[in-house]
Design a protein around this nucleic acid. Structure first.
Lengths: 122, 122
DNA sequence: TTCAAAATTAGGATTAGTTCCTAATAAGAA
DNA sequence: TTCTTATTAGGAACTAATCCTAATTTTGAA
């Protein structure tokens, strides 16, 4: 465990939201001014592969990372872009029944309109 | 409806699988040698926004497009990369119950090991 | 603790996928 | 047809991410 990777993990732990690799890089620079962008990307990828962090691909813009404590889906408002987690209890089991074999992981992004945007649209 | 867009749609209709923008571009060139890459991308984006085609972001490589006839999930084998559609009947309803409002669309990618890769791993 | 081997880093170049730009062309309405 | 508006071709530009190499750090065995 290098200092760099520990720092990246810390930043992700501290943030309750979803961060881009670049946002993590900028934050990391504040405490470790020489850390390289490539180091952030590499460690994020390694930690994603080991399951320590989760990655969320956005259709418009860079990937977002979160701490991935438990499997969860993401709720994305098409109006304002607000992103939140949604626990999807029992989904894995259901999917496994549907496909007849073990699910290794899944990514679920649900597009909807958040209450504020729904009101605005009405 | 321009000839270019019609051609792109035709190619997607004819193909039963998932194509990258570049694969569509190459095929399109065969019947319309001057079509530009940007035209393919632009039309795919427009048709995605109108719901005519579906787009699937791959973690390693370019996006894939399909005809998006009905909402469906994707099954991706982590061993060999094979991709297939999976109808997820009733998922939308469930999700709507879970989040308490209308689902506009969703993207679901399930990672698993296909039978061949499972055998190989055992 | 010391030290060599192995892994990781910084810094920057490179790549891949996609978007953007502009003058020219095509489509659609009247 | 003729005019107006949208779209295209071609290629430059952009962005996120990866790759490269010499230098540094980490690891862990002695």
């Amino acid at each position: 465990m290098t200092r760099q990777r520990a720092l990246i993990l810390d930043i992700l732990q501290a943030s309750r939201g979803h961060l881009t690799a670049d946002e993590i890089f900028v934050q990391a620079r504040q405490t470790m001014p020489n850390i390289a962008r490539g180091t952030v990307y590499r460690n994020l990828k390694l930690m994603e592969q080991s399951g320590e962090v989760g990655r969320l691909e956005m259709s418009d813009g860079p990937d977002l990372y979160d701490r991935a404590p438990t499997p969860h889906g993401h709720l994305l408002c098409d109006g304002c872009g607000m992103l939140s987690d949604v626990p999807v209890v029992g989904l894995v089991k259901e999917l496994e029944t549907a496909i007849g074999t073990e699910v290794r992981s899944y990514q679920l992004t649900i597009h909807y309109l958040c209450p504020a945007c729904r009101r605005k649209n009405a």
